[in-house]
């Protein structure tokens, strides 16, 4: 049994590039093959990242490369620093007084500590939170507010809003109540609305902090399918406590413990063939 898994994993590991090529051939030849190759582009590069809240060190020497058009999962016990790390990637951690980091964090080719125009940087690196947080205004205003502030014309804003609602599968349900409050929507719908809102400013990277932990299985499935589809043209990093979720959608997974990245591997390999004993213990405990 164990032998089987190892063999399977190894073969997957070895033929990854061949698989991509195969996929490219199957789905449309040279053009797609090119994008498959550019999929290897590194969008997020982290070197020797240490981070502190005041005197307390919460991240230690993180080392990590995250690639475009992939979903990367961060797992690990509560308090190990997943959220802090995720929020360092779009400088949200930096809004907390007393936070500072050392080392290199490069996102979309820009070093986060040298970003001048934080706002346009954050526009390129979208974020979805644990609890849906629609703004206290109509559904359509939720989607268009940021665009309006950035000077997008009204006609264009509405078009983008409808487009994104469609993309998250809400348009048919909501098209007749775009001017109503979002607070009457179900949790799952609210979260998808927030996703559409994040997508409306055209981010290239999407950071997700336990985005489905407050949702029922059906809404979770809907969201996961969306993430997989979005990852075809963007980079997604997701923090999750749900290992099954990581297994379902993430190509690679990083296991963190006590502020360190213990292991960063292809998801299947991490779960079925962990190299580090700490990973093995955690995965076994979580799966039971």
């Amino acid at each position: 049994m164990t032998n089987d898994t190892v063999a399977l994993d190894d073969s997957v590991h070895l033929t990854e590039s061949e698989l991509l090529e195969l996929e490219a051939v199957l789905t449309g030849g040279i053009h797609l093959k090119k994008t498959a190759e550019s999929a290897k582009e590194t969008v997020i590069r982290v070197e020797n990242l240490s981070a502190y809240f005041g005197h307390k060190q919460v991240l230690q020497n993180l080392q990590l490369e995250i690639k475009d058009q992939e979903i990367t999962a961060l797992i690990g016990p509560s308090g190990c620093g997943k959220t802090t790390f995720l929020r360092t990637l779009n400088r949200m951690s930096h809004t907390v007084p007393g936070f500072r980091h050392e080392g290199v964090v490069s996102v979309l080719g820009r070093d986060v500590s040298e970003v001048r125009d934080v706002e346009s940087f954050r526009r390129a690196v979208g974020m979805l939170f644990q609890r849906p947080n629609p703004f206290p205004m109509s559904i359509i205003d939720n989607l268009t507010l940021a665009l309006k502030l950035f000077g997008v014309s009204k006609k264009e804003r509405i078009e983008i809003a409808k487009d994104k609602l469609n993309e998250v599968g809400l348009y048919e349900d909501l098209k007749d109540r775009l001017h109503q409050s979002p607070f009457a929507l179900s949790g799952g719908q609210q979260q998808r609305l927030c996703l559409a809102r994040a997508l409306a400013v055209q981010p290239k990277v999407l950071l997700l902090d336990e985005p489905a932990s407050a949702l029922d299985p059906k809404s979770t499935k809907l969201l996961e399918d969306l993430f997989v589809r979005l990852a075809e043209h963007m980079t997604i990093v997701i923090v999750t406590h749900n290992l099954a979720q990581a297994k379902r959608i993430a190509k690679r997974t990083a296991f963190m413990e006590a502020g360190e990245i213990v292991e960063f591997e292809l998801t299947d390999k991490l779960f079925y063939h962990p190299q580090d004993p700490r990973t093995r213990v955690y995965v076994e405990e979580q799966i039971g």
Partner: peptide, 26 residues
């Protein structure tokens, strides 16, 4: 709740924009 300010800032709004639109409304 902090989540409103953070949600707005994560979209690329300045804290001032977020205050003037989202927070002031609340």
């Amino acid at each position: 709740p902090k989540s409103y300010l953070e949600g707005a800032i994560a979209l690329g709004m300045t804290p001032f924009m977020a205050t003037r639109t989202v927070l002031l409304k609340l």
